[in-house]
């Protein structure tokens, strides 16, 4: 589900985090975040108007554009799945340029090496902090989005004990898992 969409996908349910983890593992891993609206129970679902009386949420899709504006709302029958083709169409409509650029993207490039390579995701707050830190230190770096690059995600799992920890750094062959400013300082600033 949701493969090849030019958007950051976020799944949300009222399950608790370990339950979502177990489910994702049973499916062989899910590369986009499954978020837990467990406590306060269903607060976000309620806020979006999709919390049901039985405490679960509707099967619902909201497409949000680059400016944070809702562009599409779809409430599905609870037993039916939303259509990928329809979502792709919606995204094409609200952002034609970006849709075209994903479609022409080269599929499997070798991973970059040399200098600072940061493996990250668009949604991780530690990645955001790491970007700000690197810019503060006037260090240039290459970013690899592991949410859109399966090879990169597998590489991070190999380095980080099977976890897709972000950010993970490859600094001329030295691997630093997670954002550790002290360690980066040691390696990069002498």
């Amino acid at each position: 589900m949701f493969a090849g969409l030019n958007a950051q996908v976020l799944g949300i349910s009222i399950d608790h985090v370990p339950c979502l983890q177990a489910w994702a593992d049973s499916l062989g891993g899910i590369s986009y975040p499954l978020l837990s609206d467990f406590w306060p129970h269903g607060q976000v679902s309620e806020c979006y108007g999709v919390l049901r009386k039985d405490g679960t949420s509707e099967r619902a899709i909201f497409v949000i554009d680059r400016d944070g504006i809702i562009q599409y709302i779809d409430i599905h029958d609870i037993d039916e799945q939303p259509s990928n083709a329809e979502l792709r169409e919606v995204l094409r409509r609200i952002d034609p340029q970006a849709a075209a650029s994903t479609e022409s993207e080269a599929p499997e490039q070798p991973l970059p090496h040399g200098g600072i390579v940061m493996y990250c995701t668009p949604w991780c707050s530690d990645c955001k902090q790491a970007r700000a830190w690197l810019e503060e230190q006037h260090l240039s770096y290459t970013e690899v989005n592991i949410a859109q690059n399966r090879k990169a995600a597998a590489q991070v799992r190999a380095w980080a004990n099977g976890n897709e920890t972000t950010p993970t750094f490859d600094i001329d062959g030295v691997i630093v898992v997670d954002f550790q400013p002290e360690k980066l300082k040691e390696l990069l600033i002498r």
Partner: peptide, 25 residues
Amino acid sequence: GHLGKSVRLRDLRGQNVVLAFFPLA
């Protein structure tokens, strides 16, 4: 989230986001 870090919607400003509510794992 299940990937170990929390996610803030506002941090994704500048990208299109598909928010998919589902009833249960």
